[in-house]
Design a protein around this nucleic acid. Structure first.
Lengths: 154, 154
DNA sequence: TTTACCGTCATACTTTAGGGTGATTTGCAA
DNA sequence: TTGCAAATCACCCTAAAGTATGACGGTAAA
């Protein structure tokens, strides 16, 4: 049969046992000195030392630690991009047109975009032209700038 | 005539005086109880209580406070732009070239940039051409993309 | 003072971008 | 089936962008 006390009673039990041991010790010392009469002050001194120690020990054990909260700033780049699909639909921008827009923004020429998408240069021109109309801009740099504002590009 | 002890001796003097007072108190208690014989244990108990208190008091005064440091992470979104001047110098990009770059990124044509800066179209072309060389790119869209990566543009 | 770079402008030329129009194919929905 | 939008491509033409080279005045460092 084993007893399983919760951890929070452990401390209390320890203090109780310690106190009991000190009392036994004191009783023993009393026995030693009771023979020699008037050595009263020595006994008192020992008690004083023991209980001062007990007080110090108790204080260090029971004192609540001060908690110091240090705020550490973690700078996070706003990296998350959510495509504004509502705006996509509102402006009637097709999937392919968005693809062309993305490649344009990465700095590719129309010819490079055409090669990347396996279509002709004319097709890319058509897409970009339609795109400019829908975005109401005149140049690709403007399109990129506006698309970023409208959250169509990161 | 005034004495000016350094502050660090103040504590020691205080403890000394306190100890002296306690001893006087104990002596007085001893006087009270010495009349009634065999009330030895009451005296011991009082000493125990006083010195336990003294120990606790000493410990709280003398012990360094226990500190538990809790680091709290505060997420700060990086929204402000700081121009990478080191990169500017490294690439040898001039102030005027950066101006042209900024206006290019806002979607303006070379002519519009020229008008904005009160210079000729040719001057803008020269600046942008030099800029492309320094950024090692071939097109303005590429320049904008790279400049943003290098923190030369927001 | 000489060097070197910046900013300015010009001229000539090439390349790329952009506009307009029209045509074909495909897939989806009325 | 018809109609429509998306995607594809072609041709022609203009506008803008980009390259190369040279020139000139100002300023700051060597």
């Amino acid at each position: 049969m084993t007893f399983n006390f919760p951890a929070k009673y452990k401390g209390i039990i320890l203090y109780g046992i310690s106190l009991a041991l000190i009392l036994i010790l004191l009783k023993w010392i009393e026995w030693q000195f009771i023979i020699v009469d008037n050595l009263f002050e020595i006994y008192a001194g020992i008690i004083a030392v023991i209980f001062t120690s007990l007080g110090i020990w108790l204080a260090t054990r029971l004192s609540k630690p001060k908690t110091v909260v240090i705020e550490k700033q973690v700078i996070v780049r706003d990296t998350e991009f959510i495509l504004n699909e509502a705006m996509m639909n509102e402006l009637g921008i097709s999937r392919r047109e968005l693809e062309v827009l993305q490649l344009m923004a990465s700095g590719l020429s129309n010819q490079q975009i055409a090669d990347r998408l396996f279509v002709s240069l004319n097709t890319v021109k058509t897409h970009s032209s339609n795109l400019f109309g829908k975005l109401d801009v005149k140049r690709r740099t403007q399109a990129i700038e506006k698309a970023k504002r409208l959250k169509l590009l990161p």
